[in-house]
Design a binder for these strands. Structure first.
Lengths: 258, 258
DNA sequence: GATCTACGTTGCAACATATGCAACGCAAGG
DNA sequence: CCTTGCGTTGCATATGTTGCAACGTAGATC
């Protein structure tokens, strides 16, 4: 629809793959060299691409910085990173970290399982996760205030993806109540029939639940019950990350002015 | 120079900061709403921005994926991550991981020091580092083949940034020889007079040096000698990362066909 | 419950903007 | 020395983008 922007997008993609010469850029786009040059110059000014000493163009740090900005709370990622990787090693399963950003819940980190099921998991860092058919969403929603929960769920249309999907607000609310009581959530193939998850909440220094850690496996690898056996590791990990964020489980923050 | 691309860039930036409504987008750009809409639609098709359920636009996963692709070797980052953070904790200093990509050396990870000097360090993930005035470059160059080293240095013009900068190829080559012999490198304020570094090499399973880890501090925080005291931690870290990549220090890979 | 306002979306004509061309500078190679 | 390939600049053209006006919709207000 917007031609020149589409061209710029293509060049960014190319530059991400390998260093790009001007001639190659114009060839691929099928435009004159001067056209490609001007696009690249514009992108370069924004540091979306970078010109190397050899005159080739490569993916720029500007975009990398924006990515990290958008993933927000570098703090969370930095603090969580080591624990997530440890959890992966302990359990052997794929580990996700998801966070509430704006009005959606988004994966902010992922540690793949070395098992061959990793490629089959469609989750990607930066992608939004189903808000009513995932373990991480349940954990986060379960600990939100009623208004917040309403805000996030009011526009949702429940689709029955599989036989276990919670297909209306009432049954989903009941599930959230259960999750809030026991402190962790499951996903029994509610989005994809073969994908199982367990998730636990991450709290910040104020005790607010701001994120969730999950273990994921396809049924061929591990049943939901087998995943539940790893719950101690999962809960330990989410507790450790919360601690790094300044959460003190035994001593809730002192009420102001006392 | 390229107006519509510039506008697209601005919108991406805005979307990275906070969810963006169409009206806000058109206001900021000073264009008609339909114009902003078409730009956003183009970006959305490329997953450079994502449209949320509420109709606002946010930074898209497409760019995040490209960032990670461009940072290359997710392997290296994933394996190194925990060790880098541990090193930061052990030493208290800012930790960098830099990698040879194409014909430049680029920061691929960074763990900030909690000390107040962190903000003064201009290094950024994804940014290229001076190839003749940094400890990480020295370490990597010192272990490259002669041809590779020539390729990377042939187009370089040596500028004397500070009184300690190596300002010509001959003295720099001599420095690289020293670095190769002792196995680690320093940066005695050669780029910025107050910034000190020590760096050590990271090797892959073939024994090739593919990256470098460094400790950085401004002189007010730690002198170069004080940084050198942390060398055991640094060397331990670089060895651990190399091990994770499959490097076996005592048993170099068996020569082929024996 | 009706009206109003704000927002996002589409079709179309006019214009501005991006485009291709041609010419130039430059470096590498024959 | 000439040739070839590369990146870069100025300029006229026309293509693609823009703004307008009108529509649909949803939420707010009375």
């Amino acid at each position: 629809m917007a031609q020149s922007i589409q061209r710029a997008i293509n060049l960014i993609r190319l530059a991400a793959e390998h260093p790009l010469t001007l001639s190659e850029a114009s060839d691929v786009l099928g435009v004159h060299k001067s056209t490609a040059l001007r696009i690249l110059q514009t992108l370069e000014a924004a540091r979306f691409v970078r010109k190397t000493g050899a005159g080739t163009y490569v993916f720029g740090s500007g975009l990398i910085e924006l990515s990290e900005l958008a993933l927000g709370s570098m703090d969370l990622r930095q603090f969580a990173s080591a624990h997530l990787r440890a959890l992966q090693r302990q359990t052997g399963h794929t580990v996700h970290l998801a966070q509430l950003t704006g009005d959606e819940i988004v994966y902010v980190d992922k540690v793949d399982s070395p098992a061959f099921d990793a490629v089959k998991l469609p989750s990607r860092i930066g992608r939004a996760v189903s808000i009513y058919a995932s373990a991480v969403s349940k954990v986060i929603l379960a600990h939100l205030s009623q208004e917040e929960r309403d805000r996030l769920l009011s526009h949702v249309t429940f689709e029955r993806h599989t036989s276990t999907t919670f297909a209306d607000r009432e049954s989903f609310d009941a599930e959230l109540t259960r999750v809030a009581e026991r402190g962790w959530a499951t996903d029994d193939g509610e989005h994809d029939a073969y994908v199982m998850c367990v998730a636990a909440p991450v709290r910040d220094s104020r005790g607010q639940v701001i994120a969730a850690v999950s273990l994921t496996a396809i049924e061929v690898i591990a049943s939901l019950d087998q995943l539940k056996e790893k719950l101690p590791f999962l809960l330990e990990t989410s507790a450790l990350i919360s601690q790094e964020l300044g959460f003190t489980p035994e001593h809730p923050p002192a009420p102001s002015a006392s």
